[in-house]
Computed example of a mutant assay.
Amino acid sequence: MTVVARILRAVAIAACVPYLVLKVAWIAGSHAGIPAGSELLEHRATMAVANTVTVLMDAAVILLALALTRPWGRRVPGWALLLPLWGATGLLAPIAVGFPLQLAAEASGGTTPVGDGGGEYLDAWVFGVVYTGFGVQALALGGLFVLYVRERWGASLTGALPPGAGVRLPLCVAGLSLLAACVHLRSAVDDPVAGGPDVLWALVTAAAALLVVAPAPRVRTVVVLGWAGGSASSAWGAWALLFSLADGPFDENRPSALLSLTYAGQMVAGGLLLLLGARLLAGRRAVPAGAV
């Protein structure tokens, strides 16, 4: 394992600590960062379950950082490692892109300060701590992922994508993604910082799907675009859809029926793109295993 990998692993794990400490404190009954009168305090059972789930999700980042850098991680079946990494990429990448944009817009006076929209629920400093940690996790875990993929599957990502993908499935993914981009465009017009990234990820997903049916596209280009766009669209779509269906303190902020359908479409598009990529790359030669 290289020095770079060791540093990235330490950074990824350290970036999880503030979030985990805060969440465990809330589960234990602490009100740190929760203002008096917050509706969160009126839904203790729901929030305890939600906090437990998110603790497990963030703890999974630590497990993934170890799997990407320890010898036993090379013995994990590819699908068992790639599926949680798909989810982690999809949830963390939009934050790594969106949070700096939000801070930049705030600094220029173009939007409200980060956390102001949730001030009735949480103190503003909570958002800074949480989203900064998520951004660092995204960068560190992403770096480890790139190193791991290059060592384990580097040869599979060279050259041009072989034919045989068909047309209907890629076009279905592209169509669903473009529809999602159109729906999110209205929010992006009102608030480019908040709605713009949703449009971006949907367009990236559509571009990856359309490249599959293009003449001899480069494998790495398709994989990078498909992984980033597909995971972000599907993971955030699933999270938002789950949020819209769950009972809790945010009922007034539930998405509309149209947005819920859009999120469902994003989930389907991302899942189909993941299956398409797995099918196309399954027969390509993998680089021999080596130390990471």
Rank of each mutant, 00 (worst) to 15 (best):
L101M: 12
T111Q: 01
S108K: 07
W86V: 03
A96I: 07
P94R: 10
A88N: 02
A96K: 08
W72I: 13
A80G: 02
A65Y: 05
S108M: 12
L83W: 15
L103V: 12
G73M: 10
L63Y: 15
P84W: 02
L82T: 09
T89Q: 13
S108R: 13
S108D: 08
P94F: 11
A93R: 03
L85C: 02
G87A: 08
P71R: 07
L101H: 03
L68E: 00
V76R: 01
G78D: 14
W79L: 12
A104R: 04
P84H: 04
A96C: 08
P84Y: 01
L92V: 07
R75Q: 12
A65I: 00
L68T: 00
S108L: 14
A80L: 15
T111C: 00
V97D: 07
A93Y: 07
G87H: 02
V76E: 00
L66K: 01
A104C: 05
P94E: 12
I95S: 04
T112I: 13
R74E: 14
A107C: 00
A65F: 04
E106D: 13
L101D: 02
P71C: 08
G110V: 11
L81V: 07
P77V: 08
P77I: 08
A105T: 00
T112G: 10
L68S: 03
P71S: 07
R74F: 13
G90D: 06
W79S: 08
L64S: 07
R75D: 14
V97P: 03
S108F: 06
L91P: 06
P77E: 10
G90Y: 10
L82G: 08
L81Y: 03
A104S: 06
E106K: 09
F99K: 04
W86G: 02
A107S: 05
A93W: 09
W72S: 12
E106W: 12
L83A: 15
G78A: 14
L101R: 05
I95Y: 05
L81P: 01
P100M: 09
V76N: 05
E106T: 12
V97F: 13
T89D: 11
T89M: 14
T111E: 02
P77S: 13
S108G: 06
E106R: 05
P77G: 07
P100A: 07
R70N: 09
A65V: 00
A96F: 11
A105L: 01
